[in-house]
Design a binder for these strands. Structure first.
Length: 473
RNA sequence: CGUGGGGUAGAGCAGCCUGGUAGCUCGUUUGGCUCAUAACCAAAAGGUCGUUGGUUCAAAUCCAACCCCCACAACCA
């Protein structure tokens, strides 16, 4: 039995869960379920990122204490994750006292690579943030949101000297010691590594207070990445516990927009701590709404809960795990979602279960379920281990569609009419066993459906489900 | 000259690395079947593979230039 540690990106809880979070969770969950089915012991981390100005501001607007605000949002995310049927084992919050304590210790361990420096740049009082030189020029030195001129401000920050580890990280990525998927993202990271500016990891308390204080300097608070990235190991109990049983992570799932922090800064932090590097970082794409990026200003945001409500969770997982390519961006439209549900879940799979179960029931066919052990096809295993989940899912579907074709070719109803009992039995058992085989491969993606199918055919007497698996709408 | 991805039938995509009669799913049309959720199976129609030029007996596939779309560019997956 091998141990596998799988992680998800922890969302910033200043808003509602969206489709992107769901993708991250679902991919990690498929991975976890797959490895568990292979007999591995799996830890799956999820969590929430709860510090920072935006959250503090939001709480202020709502006139509630910050802690109360983040408690509520963290709970919100937790119930979302549960709704997605994500088989997580650990939930970490960056406001956990233990996490905060551990991050401080981590900071101290890294002190040899941390230095203090002055930052100078254009600052907008209204936005309460620094903007780039380029943005300043484009706006003619005046903030378009606040109609105020930018001010030149200076502040002191702590920086992490990423450059100390540049060579090591480059080699690790190059040699796939950290396997970055997909390959074109690896290339992108290699390019990006050529310029590795040191990363600002703190803010003065004059600007930010809702965060973990920097040990030994009350005037500074840790900035997002140090705090957030550390969650992957603080949740395991680092530094006071020996985490070598679980760390390095088998796979870390992240959105492509935060890949750079996971592929460069995060390894730099780990190397600074003398910890091994994660084995794989899987960067998934974004979900577009009708070809456009979802955004609040365009108003085309698709609410995941709304999608789940339409046909249930299994349909949601189906669409986003199969029709959204694991690595590339993909599109969501309600029309496509309806088509996928009706043509594929209802017609292909639901109907297949219905017709096979009815045939078995009418002819009193039973099957010895002991013969249906979860053995994955080599092709499926390969795809799953390369994290090509949507491709693996396609493969499962080819099997399901193939079964519909075989039923038509073998015509078991004719065998029944002609009284060919032995042939009928062989035929039906073959079909059912192959369905259960495909069902095992389906299980990491659609766990509830797979269980239902197993129950339909595994009982003493095979009966079609009282209500179809995926009723048509 | 920021970085990366993409432009192939009405739609969504595969093929490109390792050149050799252009493939899949949905949709459309027609036929078949009846175990099944009017589901299933089969067949047909539909493409000058972004543009131009080059290499080659042969290019969607290799090379060059150009056009167009998208994402990322120190915190909104």
């Amino acid at each position: 039995m091998t141990k596998k540690y799988i992680t998800t990106a922890i969302p910033y809880v200043n808003g509602k869960p969206h489709i992107g979070h769901a993708i991250d969770y679902c991919l990690a969950d498929v991975c976890a379920r797959y490895y568990r089915a292979c007999g591995d012991s799996v830890k799956l981390q999820v969590g929430t990122d709860e510090h920072g100005n935006k959250i503090a501001q939001k709480a202020k607007e709502l006139n509630v204490p910050v802690q109360e605000y983040v408690d509520e949002n963290a709970a919100n995310f937790r119930s979302f994750i549960k709704k997605l049927n994500v088989s997580y084992t650990d939930f970490v919050r960056t406001t956990d006292k233990k996490h905060e304590q551990r991050v401080k210790e981590i900071w101290q361990k890294l002190s040899g690579h941390i230095y203090k420096a002055e930052y100078e740049g254009w600052y907008c009082v209204g936005c309460e943030r620094y903007i780039t030189e380029k943005e300043c020029q484009e706006n003619g030195g005046i903030c378009p949101d606040h109609q105020k001129p930018y001010e030149k401000l200076k502040e002191e920050n702590y920086y992490y000297r990423v450059a100390d580890f540049k060579e090591q990280i480059r080699d690790a990525i190059e040699e796939d010691e950290i396997l970055i998927l997909p390959d074109f993202r690896k290339k992108e990271m290699m390019r990006l590594l050529e310029e590795t500016p040191d990363v600002s990891i703190s803010r003065p308390t004059s600007q930010l207070t809702w965060g973990v204080p920097v040990p030994g300097d009350e005037s500074q608070v840790m900035y997002v990445w140090m705090d957030a990235l550390a969650n992957y190991i603080t949740v395991l109990g680092y530094p006071e516990k020996d985490i070598s049983g679980w760390w390095p992570a088998t796979a870390q799932f992240v959105g492509k927009d935060i890949l750079r922090f996971h592929a460069i800064l995060w390894p730099a932090l780990l190397l600074g701590l003398g910890l091994p590097l994660p084995k794989t970082i899987v960067s998934h794409g974004m979900v577009l709404a009708d070809g456009q990026k979802m955004s609040k200003s365009i108003g085309n945001v698709v609410e995941p809960l709304e999608v789940i409500d339409k046909y249930g969770l299994e349909a949601f997982r189906y669409y986003f795990l199969r029709h959204v390519d694991t690595f590339a961006d993909a599109d969501f439209t309600w029309d496509k979602y309806d088509d996928a549900y009706n043509n594929e879940l209802a017609n292909d799979l639901g109907n297949l279960v219905q017709r096979l179960a009815t045939l078995a029931s009418k002819n009193d066919i039973r099957i010895n379920t002991g013969t249906s052990i979860a053995i994955y096809s080599e092709e499926y295993d390969d795809l799953m281990r390369e994290y090509k989940f949507s491709k693996a899912f396609d493969l499962v579907w080819v099997k399901i569609q193939g079964l519909n074709k075989r039923i038509d070719e073998e015509k078991p109803w004719n065998l029944a009419k002609e009284g060919e009992i032995a042939k009928l039995y062989t035929c039906m058992c073959g079909l059912i066993k192959d369905l259960l085989q495909a069902n095992h491969e389906l299980a990491p993606f659609l766990p509830e459906t797979a269980e239902k199918i197993q129950n339909v055919f595994a009982g003493d007497k095979i009966q079609p489900p009282k209500t179809p698996l995926f009723p048509k709408h």
